[in-house]
């Protein structure tokens, strides 16, 4: 009887622990999203920056029909990357400045739950901005970027970029040179993910067959897995006091 009772009991404890972990993650994501939907300061900054970047690229590269075909992927990813660092920096600075990070660290949850919480909210911000930039680009240049394949590639690229970006932003906001440091730390490390993403989306937009773009897509998947895993393991060392 006792064994019977303890068995489901321990199982439910485990379930509760796992449930608590996911609850902690979703609590952080909800906190960030709700704060953002009240102030809009992060998304609006990223968005305005992205549109200005598109404007500058338009005139710097003279995006006529012919050049557009070869550089659309590059323009999009350069815009996403710069807007991304803006968002990552801000999202982590808010935590640091308002002392939220210390509060989160005191909470009785696994530190990696904090990482995943910040990762998902950063990813959400980046995807929201991308979801607005894509139709704007489509309208401005009379193309349709809303293709499932391209969206999948953008999702994979954004996951890789924010996974390592969240970890590095958690580090850079704690330094003296905080705002300047993040792109310097992030770009050489995220070089591979940006390159593969540009290659994959460029190939996709130019109608290359799947065999040609499968290699960069595989690289993106490998990068995502490796860097989510490593950031998850290392986050503890970055936030400990």
């Amino acid at each position: 009887m006792a064994t019977k009772a303890s068995h489901p009991n321990s199982l439910s404890k485990k379930e509760a622990a796992v449930g608590g972990y996911f609850k902690a993650i979703s609590a952080i994501v909800w906190k960030d999203l709700r704060a953002e939907f009240r102030s809009w300061e992060l998304i609006s900054a990223m968005l305005v920056f992205s549109l200005l970047a598109l404007l500058i690229f338009n005139f710097a590269l003279e995006l006529d029909v012919k050049t557009r075909q070869s550089v659309t992927a590059g323009v999009l990813w350069a815009t996403f990357a710069f807007a991304g660092t803006l968002g990552l920096n801000r999202s982590m600075s808010i935590e640091k400045d308002r002392g939220c990070l210390d509060g989160l660290l005191l909470a009785p949850v696994d530190r990696s739950a904090i990482y995943f919480g910040k990762f998902f909210s950063n990813l959400a911000f980046m995807l929201i901005v991308e979801a607005i930039v894509l139709p704007v680009y489509s309208v401005l240049y009379n193309t349709n970027l809303f293709q499932p394949g391209l969206i999948a590639i953008i999702l994979l690229g954004s996951v890789g970029y924010t996974s390592v970006g969240t970890l590095l932003a958690a580090m850079s906001v704690q330094t003296r040179t905080r705002d300047v440091l993040l792109p310097i730390l992030l770009f050489p490390v995220a070089f591979a993910v940006l390159l593969s993403a540009v290659k994959a989306s460029g190939g996709f937009l130019n109608g290359a067959d799947f065999a040609e773009i499968s290699f960069p897509i595989n690289l993106l998947i490998v990068y995502d897995i490796i860097f989510i895993a490593i950031s998850f393991m290392l986050f503890d060392a970055v936030v400990e006091e």
Partner: peptide
Amino acid sequence: IGGLSAPITFFSIRL
């Protein structure tokens, strides 16, 4: 992180 990214960077430019 930098050390891990180096081989991936290498393969990505193999494109």
